[in-house]
Computed example of a mutant assay.
Amino acid sequence: MSNADWAARGEQVFIGTYSRFPAAMVKGRGCRLWDDDGREYLDFLAGIAVCSLGHCHPAVTRAVCEQAQELMHVSNLFHTKPQIRLAELLCANTFADKVFMANSGAEANEAAIKLARIHSGAGRYEIISLSGSFHGRTLATVAATGQPKFHQGFEPLPKGFVHARFGDPAEVEQLINEKTCAILCEPVQGESGVRPLDREYLQAIRAMC
């Protein structure tokens, strides 16, 4: 079967949530991918940053195979040694004292929104995010996303989200009021092109918090 054949089969069974390229990837090594027609690609996406060590990195492949032979999944109702070790590494090498294991960026952002609201007290629920941002595909993270095209068809969206112009700390400051509980931003926006926020901007909004 060709790429076109696989793409046609996929369109018959997948909901059209994402626009997919008409190629069926069958192999990856390092920063390269191969499709079912044998075409080779230099992969600049890295699985949308999931495969940051490259495809089929020997150490990752070995660790996955070894763990799969011992234990796959028991849910968060139980402790597992690899999960505890990972949490310890994250706490030791980041700002965090504790971690929340999530399955996606949207789930992580949902948790951040809930944490900000629950710890800010009554009446403080509003979150400021930036124009051009992308924070996920759940209803709350769609509302936080600063791109109207992602809002279309999902109205009414959850309330409590406002958007400031990208790169304008003065506008963020103007939007802060007695209802504000958090500022949500990406240091580098991806969905709107690779748009980094400069250090001075990030320091300015950090000082506002």
Rank of each mutant, 00 (worst) to 15 (best):
M72R: 14
P169A: 05
Q203F: 01
H55G: 07
D37N: 03
V13L: 10
I205V: 06
G121T: 14
S52Q: 13
V162M: 04
F161T: 01
R206N: 00
R206Y: 08
S75C: 11
V162T: 06
R29N: 10
H135Y: 10
F161M: 04
A204R: 06
G153M: 03
V142T: 09
Q12E: 11
G146M: 05
F44G: 10
D198G: 05
C91R: 12
M25R: 01
R9S: 11
G105I: 12
L45G: 07
A87Y: 08
M1N: 14
R165A: 10
G167V: 03
R165P: 15
I118Q: 15
C209T: 03
K114Q: 15
Q152K: 08
A87E: 10
F95D: 14
N76C: 14
G30Q: 04
E171I: 03
K98R: 14
H135G: 07
L90C: 14
A207E: 00
G54D: 07
R199F: 06
S192Q: 07
E186Y: 02
A111D: 12
A92T: 12
G160E: 04
N76H: 13
P148L: 07
A59R: 11
E126G: 11
T94C: 08
H119V: 14
S19F: 07
R39Y: 06
G121R: 09
P196N: 07
Y41N: 00
G38N: 06
L115Q: 15
L77W: 11
G193D: 06
V142A: 02
T138Y: 04
A140W: 08
R206P: 01
M1K: 09
A102D: 08
E191A: 11
H163L: 07
E126Y: 09
T145D: 04
K179L: 05
N93C: 11
A204L: 06
G190D: 04
A8R: 05
R20C: 07
D43P: 00
P187F: 03
D37A: 03
V50I: 13
S133H: 00
Y125I: 11
S2Y: 07
L184K: 06
A207K: 03
C185S: 07
P169L: 00
S129Q: 07
I127S: 04
H135T: 09
D97S: 14
L157C: 06
